[in-house]
Design a protein around this nucleic acid. Structure first.
Lengths: 233, 233
DNA sequence: CCAATAGTTCGGTCGTTACCGAAGGGTCAT
DNA sequence: ATGACCCTTCGGTAACGACCGAACTATTGG
């Protein structure tokens, strides 16, 4: 009904530098305390509290109290997707060299990172490209994929929890998520999450202590080569 | 460090209700005048002008001056994509404002109408396309065409008052005019006016009593086919 | 109990910006 | 030329909201 208004409300929330910094930190898909987020945003705890309350109110974040801490995380992958899209748009603008974004200079982040709960960067793209090129994924509509029967076979052999992914009826199953560093869609949604879980469970990849960067292990490189037929530089 | 900032800048631009309304209207992919956008946003022309300038500055919009109007359109599909994503996040069905625009509901207006004193719509485009494809018109600069010698011959055989058109030194001779419904330039200026006069004089087209709608007669359809080699649906 | 830590609420300040009235420039028609 | 129309720039106002200091609640640990 109030489409334009609600859009501007969401965008206005993301349009504040402090809140954008918080959302950016939360893009790793993990939950962070209010203090961490205040630090990341460069504001005091009171200010951060206000920001967080507003974002929870708008269903951008979800909060969970634990002891005397309060953990915040992104409310959904859609929020992460919107942030990624805005990053992609921000990257296309003709900008002077002096304002080159930090992420353009971070090769590790461009190589592999988490986008909410799935893999992004060159590794995320490599997985996605392999699936599409082998006929495991087929485009469906403008923003989804269909997992073909060969794709189901491939995923179950890989050890991906397909049943669990299909059980998550509240979210898209195989969603396209625009990769801001590579500017092409990678696999997202419940399937993307399940695939990422497989990578972590099998020790193919591990999250860095801080930030969204993900390190591809040696066995991960071998797995990419043997299972996905992909060689990364 | 700059990444979060640039994202928040973009989001902040989209976060104002007036600007979001403008962007929403522009989601139809077409160019709109500053007045239309001011009306859509519910603000005065001065306020709208400021908003539009900021969005052009941020490479969200592209502007093109034409006569006393100034047309604005989205700078790229990425902008539309970002808006769509935000709409999806806002939980609103992306309903392009185009469905409510008058010209969208009026197929006759889209088919053929006058634009000041020359023909616009599909018929205007058909005439223009035919002239360029036969080498009668050649682009000159960003906003004009040159009538080639073959074009002069063609026009005089058609009965177009070329002498009168050339005598009107106060206006451009063969001007490009952006077609609002088709988003491509059609022939305007003194030559465009003279061509339209020919259509009316020969009974190929007649103005409707009210409004800008023009009806193409049966002989007009035959003329389009025989003289311009164009078949319209 | 008291102290320390985490987080929120309240009140007031301050900067940003959206807004409009007035005025000016450019274009087109009569 | 004159007026009408479209758009922009300028100046001033008003309101929203981001921010922090201070005070308050809740949990943990000694």
């Amino acid at each position: 009904m109030v489409t334009v208004n609600s859009v501007s409300e969401i965008a206005a929330l993301m349009g504040d530098p402090a809140r954008a910094s918080m959302l950016s930190l939360l893009m790793d898909g993990r939950a962070h305390t209010a203090s961490e987020l205040a630090l990341a945003a460069g504001v005091t705890a009171q200010t951060a509290s206000g920001h967080l309350a507003r974002m929870v109110d708008a269903n951008l974040l979800a909060a969970r109290a634990q002891g005397r801490n309060r953990f915040y995380r992104l409310a959904s992958g859609e929020v992460a997707h919107a942030m990624e899209t805005l990053m992609a748009l921000a990257g296309t603008r003709a900008a002077p060299a002096s304002t080159t974004a930090a992420w353009r200079r971070d090769p590790d982040l461009r190589f592999c990172r988490t986008c909410y709960d799935h893999l992004a960067g060159q590794v995320g793209l490599a997985v996605t490209d392999s699936l599409t090129q082998h006929g495991h994924l087929e485009p469906k509509g403008a923003r989804d994929w269909t997992l073909t029967s060969s794709g189901e076979l491939f995923c179950s052999r890989l050890g991906v929890d397909l049943a669990g992914a299909k059980a998550a009826h509240t979210r898209h199953f195989a969603r396209q998520c625009l990769d801001w560093s590579e500017r092409r869609p990678h696999i997202s949604g419940a399937l993307g999450s399940a695939i990422a879980d497989t990578f972590f469970k099998k020790g193919w990849a591990e999250r860095m202590r801080r930030g969204r960067t993900v390190r591809l292990t040696d066995s991960g490189r071998r797995a990419l080569s043997s299972h996905f037929g992909t060689s990364l530089s």
